[in-house]
Nucleic acid binder design. Structure first.
Lengths: 143, 143
DNA sequence: TTACAAACGCAAATGATTCTTATTTAGGTT
DNA sequence: AACCTAAATAAGAATCATTTGCGTTTGTAA
């Protein structure tokens, strides 16, 4: 998987760029993220990381993942009631969540820009930092 | 405020219609909701309700509010990390949340339908039950 | 190699929400 | 008017994701 390797390089590169220390814990997390599917939870990362780094603390994973969002290495997907999901896909996209199996599907929406325009004009001087369309329903599998 | 009274009547009406019992606890909650601003939390309702009904249990408020969503008397607004907000405004609308003061502002978006179309075509046979645009940023006040 | 901010591990704290269980009650039925 | 039963409630324990406090360790820049 040269793609995974690229992801890993990218994370390490961004990390250095942002001045984050290359601790072994962080390296394990990076590697797991680069090998994982999208939308992973902290717990999923933690459980896999713990295999190679048994003294790893969950708090460290929580801290790191959220910090990676702050520094722009990751995106997080806020699902109320459920655990936070993390996403290495930094392209603008949105999410459909199956309320049955909880699977998350990416959706790419060009037309959303019109809603952003509408929002801007209604919100006046407010500054919009993020726009997130959240779709819920039942996926094909579950139907 | 005849409008409040109408809201209250509406809630009581819907409640009967759905076969919910008119307990005093429920009545207090209904009245508070009909007198409240939008986007209230369970805790806000509970704190106000407790004044007139001191032995009220928070669990009762949680149970009732969520049940009201299920039966269509209310809408809830899921904000991950924060408490659930409840909304008596049943018209289709979306929300802007100020990340500073947490204030919620309603936004009415006609163009969102195009994004729904786009989503449908990308999701294939999945069935979409709800679509929720979540805007974040800094409100005019906080700027 | 030294210094020091950053990062860690651990365990306790938090905070919203849900669940359990025993008790009460609204509202339809004799 | 007493009666029945499913629904609703109070109280508090339990859950679960996440955060925080704090003493210790460790990259890494000088």
């Amino acid at each position: 998987m040269t793609e995974n390797k690229d992801n890993l390089e990218k994370l390490i590169g961004l990390s250095k760029e942002k001045g984050l220390k290359l601790t072994p814990q962080r390296m394990v997390i990076f590697r797991i993220l680069s090998e994982s599917k999208q939308h992973v939870t902290v717990d999923q990362v933690y459980k896999r990381a713990r295999v190679e780094y048994p003294m790893l603390s969950p708090a460290t994973v929580y801290r790191n993942m959220e910090q990676m969002v702050e520094t722009g290495l990751l995106t997080h997907l806020e699902l109320s009631g459920a655990s936070m999901r993390y996403d290495t896909n930094l392209d603008e996209h949105h999410h459909f969540v199956c309320s049955k199996c909880r699977m998350v599907t990416d959706v790419y929406l060009d037309n959303i820009k019109y809603s952003l325009d509408e929002s801007r004009s209604q919100l006046g001087k407010a500054q919009i930092n993020s726009l997130d369309l959240h779709l819920q329903g039942t996926c094909g599998e579950c139907l």
